[in-house]
């Protein structure tokens, strides 16, 4: 119920803003036609322009409906088609990022030299704006003959490995002194301590990191579609929309991306709850 109230309020604000932002254009039009615009006519016009500054929610909704349900998913105009292009890059990059992040974290926890040297680089890598580095990754990979899905996945990975490294380093170090001493009294090897104690202990940290990584991964995939002039993907829809002033298209792509992120993150949330409950780490 509180959720419904908040959503209603947001939509109300959205409609009001649409009136405000689109009013100048409506007045211009009316003046040129030599008409006087009443309030009802003004509202009606601002909510139904072709290229509004801010499209009204129902316009975005209609556009999404039109480009998902009413189009074949193989069509270039289908949002599902574009969403799938972006999703595949996101998932591939997320997979790479997770594996790479876990490997780096293991290295950092077990190797003193890596502990001292790698972490600053990892942090530095995230201070570089992704928009600056994304075109270079794509150009460089293109030069060696790799194009399409993989470069975008690389950019996704670049963003998503970071939360995994940070979370897993903390997670792998979460066993306390007593638990490590206990392993020592059994004369356990480093590998046994890792598989039986450190890795299971790190699971709550891993899942929290994965949620952030998934969202970052989606952002990476969309950003990766921008500089290439890609013809497909949610990023390409955003770009094409802004070229042609198709604000409704931009907004529907944005909403689609947000919905995609929400679904992906909540999937990890479900996985997290199931796993941790089975591991007895959550009541």
């Amino acid at each position: 119920m509180p959720v419904a109230v908040v959503v209603t309020v947001i939509i109300a604000i959205w409609y009001a803003a649409a009136v405000g932002l689109n009013a100048p254009w409506a007045h211009d039009k009316a003046k040129r036609a030599g008409q006087e615009l009443g309030l009802a006519a003004l509202v009606q016009d601002t909510w139904s322009q072709d290229k509004p500054k801010l499209p009204a929610p129902h316009q975005v909704g209609a556009e999404i409906w039109k480009t998902t349900v009413q189009k074949k998913i193989t069509s270039k105009r289908s949002l599902v088609y574009h969403g799938w292009i972006t999703l595949s890059a996101t998932l591939l990059g997320f997979g790479f990022g997770t594996v790479f992040g876990i490997l780096l974290a293991v290295g950092i926890v077990y190797n003193r030299t890596m502990d001292m040297s790698v972490m600053p680089w990892v942090i530095a890598s995230q201070t570089i704006p992704i928009l600056a580095i994304a075109p270079m990754i794509i150009v460089v990979l293109n030069a060696v003959g790799i194009s399409g899905l993989l470069p975008k996945a690389m950019i996704s990975m670049y963003l998503s490995f970071f939360p995994v490294v940070v979370g897993m380093v903390k997670g792998l170090r979460s066993p306390d002194r007593m638990q490590l001493d206990q392993m020592r009294t059994w004369n356990a090897s480093a590998a046994q301590t890792f598989w039986r104690l450190r890795l299971p202990s790190s699971m709550p940290y891993l899942f929290t990191s994965l949620k952030i990584a998934m969202a970052a991964s989606l952002v990476g995939a969309i950003v990766g579609e921008l500089p290439t002039g890609a013809v497909a993907g949610l990023g390409a829809r955003l770009l094409a929309g802004s070229y042609y002033g198709q604000t409704i298209q931009i907004w529907s792509a944005l909403i689609a991306a947000a919905a995609l992120a929400a679904v992906l993150v909540s999937l990890i949330g479900v996985l997290q709850r199931v796993t941790l409950r089975r591991m007895g780490m959550q009541e």
Binding site: M178, D181, Q182, L197, P200, R278, M279, G280
Partner: peptide, 10 residues
Amino acid sequence: VFQAAGLYPW
């Protein structure tokens, strides 16, 4: 045997 049981919850 440590002061805390230290059983693994999983």
